[in-house]
Each structure stands twice: as C-alpha cells, then as structure tokens.
Design a protein around this nucleic acid. Structure first.
Lengths: 227, 227
DNA sequence: TCCGATGCGTGACTTTTGTCGCATCGAGGC
DNA sequence: GCCTCGATGCGACAAAAGTCACGCATCGGA
C-alpha cells in the first residue's frame, strides 16, 4: 500500500502545526487511494469511516436531486480536505464526491483523527477555522442560488475564474475551460442548455469569447457588474 | 447590567461540559441583551465581537439580496447559538439576525470564548460537532433551493412543523402559524404571493386547512410524499 | 480510418416563478 | 367604535428557467 511521509502531512492545513515527529507518526496510518476519471470517492448516505485530502487531480462535492439533477457544493483542488462533517456529527455522508480527472487522495480514519485531536488541541482549532470558512462559503452559495439569476451566477463563475486562474494576454484574460458545461450547470444550479445559451449571449455582448478549450475574458469589469 | 448564573450557562450546548465553578466564572463576563420585535441583533458585513445565545423569543438568520428579497438561513429558538462563524475565520458577519418577537440573548465576547477554549479543549470539540451539524443543515438547504420546487419546500415546512410542533386533534394535526407568509417565503426561498397561492392549492386538495392563526394538517402522508 | 461516447449548439415550447396592482380583513391603539 | 397598518388574497401578466428533440463536432480507441 502506498504511504506518505511527514512533510506531506504537514502541508494539510489541519496538520500544519504538528511537530515533525508527530506528523511522521500520523503518516504511518494514512492511506493513499487512486481514482479514475468520474470515479466516486464518497457516496451520499454511506457511513463515514474517515476523511480525505485531495493529493492530485480535481474533484467535486455534489448532491443529486430526485430527478437526477446535480448541485455542486464545492470544487476540490490538490490540498483540499473533504468528508470531515460526519466525523463530528456522527451522521452519514451528507453529499457525494467524485473526481473530474484521474486523482489521488489521502485517507485519514476517524479513529486516527480523534487520536490526533486528543493529543493536539491545536488541530481542533484549525478545524474550527476550516469549518467556519466553509459555513461562510455555503452562506454565499445559498444567497446566490436563492437570490441571483443564473446569468449572474455564470458571470460570477467567469469573473472568479479569470481573477484566480486567468492569464493576461493581448487578447484578454485567458482561462482554461476546466469544467464541462454540464458541470458548470451543476455548479451554478441550472441545466446545460441554459449555460450554453447564456454563454452565447455573453459572447454576443462581447464580454467573453468562448473557445474550444478556453475562455477569453474581454471585459472583466462588465462581468463584475453583472454579479 | 443583567447577569446570568452558572447553571444557565451550562444549558448552552457548547458549555455543557464545563464544571460548575468554571461556568460561574464564565457567567461573570456574559451580558444579557434585550430586543424588540423586528429589532436587529447582527447586521451582515459588520465586524464581529462575540457570539450569542438566544435566551427567550425567536429570531431568524438571513441574507438580503440586491433587490431586497431575503433568504432565511436558520430559524432560532431559545437555547440556540449564533454568530460563531466570524469568531473563527476572522471575517465580518456573514448574515444578519433579527428577532421575530421580543427576545433576550446572551452575548459572549470573542476574547472570553478563546479563553474558555484554551483552558477547556472539550469546548472546541463541542463546537466542532455543532459546526458539522450546521454544515449538514446548509447542505440540505442548498439541495432544497436548487433541486426542489417551491411547492415541495412548502410541503416540507408544513410536514416538519406538524411533526415537531403539531398537536393531534380530532380534526387533524394543529400547528400554530408562527411565521408570516412573508417569512415563510424567505424561508423557502420564494415570494409571499407564491406561498399564498401554494397554500390555497394545498387547501383545495385537502392536505391542510389554513386558519387565521393555525394550520390544520389533514393528510400528513400526502405532504410527506410531496417533499 | 471508422465508430461510439461525450460534449455542445439551438429552436420551439412548457412550466414555474416572480411582479404588479388592488381589495380585504383583523388587531390594537385612540 | 373608528382608524391605521401589517398581513393576506388574488387576478392578470411577464419573465426566467427548464424540457425536448435534434444535429453536429471531437476525440480516443478498436
């Protein structure tokens, strides 16, 4: 079975404050798991036995409605942790997680986690910061879905992507299209067709150019105003 | 200034495990504040200086959209705590809180809270449970708003209210109307008119009788099926 | 090089939801 | 008892969002 070492453990936000020795000890119990594209890491409703850290690749946390539509709660990048909620409230997994591309994740069992927290209260404190940030994020998401139009949510996605991952060029800000329109729809709480049409309208309005594998944001300020 | 005593402090979930002496010490620093109907306790965006425990009355946590529409994130009953998020992530208050009826709340400052956590790690653990439960609750709310119809959300509200607060009578399950239609709309993420119409339809279908001050749920199973 | 899976574009239509405007109706204050 | 105001009821519309049904392009294998 694949193993990790102390230094990598300490790159996980929750464990950043552990001593080298303690991190090495924790590493002993950490498991590395690999997933193929679209493979599931966590299934909503299943019992929880620990939490994960995404090591490589990208993933999404989502809920599936009765009609099969999905709502993405959070996108995951390397270093992000997920699956902690049921550890603390004892319930089943509140949402599903699957990977968008071949990925690896570290798995830390509930027992290990409790042990670490018991011996290092600072870890609990880090977790509180983390949970607080996620509650804040969910608050934003709820407001968006409930009080903003689909167009505004798509504009926000483009705006944030451009700010966070975009590269300035003479043509505008170039951002890789890292999600399918289907996933973009699930992210903003809509359906593929609406995303497709909205992107077309934004393109006609000269806000953004939609290319095969990338967006070129031509008017970042206009996008910002639509949010 | 009004003060509280140790035993009351220990009814707060976060502090249930404190010793009597410690609770009494904490009580020294706790402030009691009173609010009139519709008065604001927390304003979204303001700086945070501590968190609250609702002592009497009822309140709502909500966000206001650009067009003035509101989305309720959580309803508060006596004993519920709120306002903890910014304590831990250091940001401004993520949402507003106001009271639905004359209410009292306890205020515990950030400094006090940090002090208590530092000396009693078990408090941090209780907070983690609490945050986890709230993240789970938000996950449910997001799914509802994003993937279910307004009708289904209203049915759920009636169903849950009937289960939690309803009294069985020969006519059906009687539940007090504790929210205005305006607040019901903000709770389910819609507008007053739609709530009014939906209730009418449900009444015509014989699911529930809408009286001036109470609902009479006539067919709980049918409501459950609509959720 | 062909083929099937996947992703995307689009028109036409339906449904749900939200907006507007007003009438009504009690409860509580004078 | 009268008046006001918050809370409701409701019809007629408007607009946003979702559904259906296709056709088309790409891309990574067999």
């Amino acid at each position: 079975m694949l193993r990790v070492h102390g230094p990598e453990i300490r790159t996980v936000p929750h464990f950043a404050d552990l001593s080298e020795a303690e991190a090495e000890r924790l590493a002993e119990t950490v498991e590395v798991r690999s997933y193929d594209r679209r493979e599931s890491i966590i299934v909503e409703g299943d019992r929880c036995t620990g939490f994960f850290v995404l090591r490589t690749g990208r993933a999404r946390i989502f809920r599936t409605g009765s009609d099969g539509r999905e709502q993405i709660l959070r996108l995951l990048a390397p270093g992000d942790t997920f699956g902690e909620v049921p550890i603390f409230d004892g319930g089943p997994n509140p949402a599903s997680v699957d990977v968008l591309e071949p990925s690896e994740a570290l798995f830390i069992s509930t027992a290990t986690m409790f042990d670490v927290i018991g011996r290092h209260p600072v870890v609990a404190f880090e977790l509180l910061r983390h949970f607080a940030a996620r509650l804040r994020g969910f608050t934003e998401l709820i407001e968006q879905i409930s009080l903003q139009t689909v167009q505004s949510r798509i504009a926000r996605y483009l705006y944030v992507s451009a700010r966070e991952e975009g590269k300035e060029t003479s043509e505008g800000i170039v951002v890789a299209r890292s999600l399918t329109q289907q996933d973009m729809a699930a992210l903003v709480g809509s359906v593929r067709e609406v995303v497709s049409r909205t992107l077309r309208v934004m393109e006609d309005d000269g806000l953004v150019e939609v290319r095969r594998t990338e967006f070129v944001v031509r008017d970042l300020e206009a996008l910002k105003r639509m949010v």
